[in-house]
């Protein structure tokens, strides 16, 4: 009986593992292999996962840029788990790739594996997010966005949106996931500008919407009940803003007019909302960092890593509603 039960449990677990494997296959590693001579650079890249549209665009950009730059890419998806990323990096070390790059899923706990890479003489480039290490020489550079600057840019965009507005401004803020770097730093950057130059601005309500549409909608519905006089919504990403727009409409107000909305990311649906005038301005947070990453990989491979800045910031722009319709067709994510 026990044998039968354990067999059944095992087979059920195996079938579940099979399902997971099937899911993982949606991001097939497009390693070009070593079809060309020894000159070709091999890059081992460990992605965080595929948790959002932003991330999917990020993955695609890395793959396309690698193909365009003639770099052989070994790609793996860590499914949001640090241990998966660490084992991926170890396998890249064992395969003796030329450069390792990864988007760290969390901030700490990378020292050991990064030291192994250093001992094997393989340079490491971080993308999108940073790590905390005891030894700064463990990675060459970080290619990614500066979330704090994004917060500051959002504040400056709001200045533009509010041009001509007199008197106090009451702001509601939809924060990202509590404790996530983008949430903390976007709030910080925004507050810095607000305190420095806008004593008339006041954040009257601030809550986390977990970066999701459902979260943004629910929190905004409650904000609108508790505060009848919100002038501005600052949302840490477009999805929460899209959810909040629905709540604002349900409250009988016009998003973009009665309540001005400034948001971060620049995903396709965010641009659609902005082209309808529902979002007033968007701070772009660009996932398309593949080309910049490949440039950095080439420099590092040529042994000139020391010439690179410690932080290569992604090329990003700010958009206001009047630019939305023109920019919409070219949005890739």
């Amino acid at each position: 009986m026990i044998d039968r039960r354990s067999f059944l449990t095992a087979s059920a677990a195996a079938s579940a593992a099979g399902m997971l494997a099937a899911c993982a296959k949606k991001n097939p590693a497009k390693s070009a292999g070593s079809q060309t001579g020894s000159k070709q650079i091999t890059l081992g890249f460990s992605q965080v996962g595929s948790e959002s549209g932003w991330r999917a665009a990020n993955t695609q950009s890395v793959k396309q840029a690698a193909a365009a730059a003639g770099i052989a890419l070994k790609f793996s998806d860590a499914q949001q788990k640090q241990e998966n990323q660490i084992s991926a990096i170890r396998s890249y070390i064992a395969q003796k790739v030329d450069v390792i790059s990864f988007s760290p899923v969390v901030v700490t706990g990378w020292d050991t594996v990064l030291k192994e890479a250093k001992a094997a003489n393989i340079p490491v480039i971080l993308t999108d997010r940073s790590v905390e290490t005891s030894d700064p020489s463990l990675y060459v550079t970080l290619v990614g966005s500066d979330f704090e600057i994004e917060g500051e840019r959002a504040a400056h965009l709001l200045e533009k949106v509010l041009a001509g507005h007199k008197g106090p401004v009451k702001i509601a803020q939809l924060e990202g996931t509590t404790g996530a770097a983008p949430a903390i730093e976007r709030a910080k950057g925004f507050a810095t500008i607000m305190h420095a130059s806008h004593p008339e601005w006041k954040i009257i309500a601030s809550q986390t919407g977990d970066f999701t549409r459902a979260g943004g909608k629910q929190v905004m519905a409650a904000f609108l009940q508790a505060h009848a006089d919100i002038d501005v919504l600052f949302s840490h990403n477009d999805d929460m803003a899209i959810g909040a727009i629905q709540s604002i409409q349900a409250a009988g107000k016009t998003p973009g007019t009665d309540i001005k909305i400034v948001s971060v990311d620049g995903v396709h649906d965010g641009f659609v909302a902005m082209s309808k005038g529902q979002i007033n301005a968007i701070v772009e947070c660009n996932p398309l960092l593949g080309p910049q990453l490949m440039d950095a990989v080439k420099v590092v491979h040529a042994g000139k890593g020391s010439t690179l800045p410690r932080w290569i910031k992604t090329k990003e722009s700010d958009y206001t509603a009047d630019q939305a319709a023109a920019a919409l067709p070219s949005r890739k994510y």
Binding site: R5, T9, A12, A16, M19, L20, C23, S52, G53, D239
Partner: peptide, 26 residues
């Protein structure tokens, strides 16, 4: 199979299936 284990399978795998359906996008 114990219910907590039996349904855990779909809890983990099901979200993968949902991602497969949406191709990881919204």
């Amino acid at each position: 199979i114990q219910p907590i284990i039996a349904t855990l399978i779909l809890m983990v795998a099901g979200r993968g299936i949902a991602q497969l359906i949406t191709s990881g996008q919204i």
